Amino acid sequence: MARSPSGESVLTRAVRILEAFNPAEPVLTVSQISRRAALPLATTVRLVEELTRHGLLARDEQRRVRIGNRMWELAQRASPVRRLRETAMQFMGDLHHVVGHSVQLGILDGEEVLFVERLIAPGAVVTVTQIGGRLPLHASSGGLVLLAHAPADLRERVLRQPLQAYTPHTITDARTLRATLAEVRRNGFAFCPGHIHPDATGISVPVRMSGHVVAALGMVVPNDEHAWPLVRPLQLTGLALERALDMQPGRLADTAEQDG
Rank of each mutant, 00 (worst) to 15 (best):
L47I: 00
P222G: 09
T29V: 02
L146N: 03
L108P: 02
A190C: 13
M71L: 15
H226T: 10
M71C: 11
Q258L: 09
A174G: 15
G55Y: 02
A37N: 05
T255I: 14
D94K: 15
A42M: 09
G250H: 12
F21N: 11
A200L: 09
P229L: 05
L137M: 04
D259Y: 03
A37F: 01
R36D: 08
E156W: 05
R251T: 14
A139R: 06
P162N: 02
A148H: 01
I131K: 10
R134I: 08
H101D: 15
G68M: 07
S204K: 11
D94Q: 15
Q235T: 02
L18G: 09
D254A: 10
G132F: 13
M89N: 06
D224V: 00
M89V: 01
Q32A: 15
P122Y: 10
V125W: 11
S102N: 11
T12I: 08
T255V: 14
H96L: 07
V10K: 14
V10C: 04
L56I: 04
E117V: 00
S210W: 00
Q164F: 10
L95Q: 09
E49D: 11
E19W: 02
L39R: 06
V221N: 04
N22W: 07
R36K: 15
R63W: 09
R157Y: 07
F115K: 06
V30E: 13
V116H: 03
M89K: 12
E86M: 04
H212A: 15
R118S: 12
V184Y: 00
S79E: 01
S210H: 03
Q258R: 11
R70V: 02
E257C: 08
Q76V: 04
G194P: 14
E86C: 05
I196R: 06
L163Q: 03
P193S: 04
V231K: 03
R186Q: 14
H169D: 13
L137G: 05
M89A: 09
R134E: 11
V48H: 09
V205T: 01
T172G: 08
H54P: 00
L47G: 01
S31Q: 11
G132V: 04
H169L: 13
G143F: 03
P168T: 12
D199W: 08
H97C: 01
A244D: 12
L84S: 12
V126M: 11
P26C: 07
A124Y: 01
G68L: 05
L217W: 03
R155P: 12
R3T: 10
S34Q: 01
S79Q: 04
G110F: 07
A24E: 02
R77Y: 10
R63K: 08
S9V: 02
V207P: 00
R36V: 01
I196G: 04
M1Q: 10
G260W: 02
H169E: 14
I17Y: 08
G93D: 07
I33M: 06
H54F: 12
L217M: 05
P233T: 11
E61N: 08
A24I: 00
H97D: 06
A42G: 07
R59F: 15
G93P: 01
P23N: 13
H138T: 11
G106V: 00
I171N: 08
T44C: 07
P80H: 02
N69T: 00
V48P: 06
E117W: 02
T201R: 13
R178S: 15
A215L: 01
P206E: 06
V65Y: 08
E112Q: 14
A240P: 00
R251F: 12
Y166L: 15
L11W: 11
R13F: 07
H149K: 02
Q62L: 10
E225T: 05
G142V: 00
T87P: 03
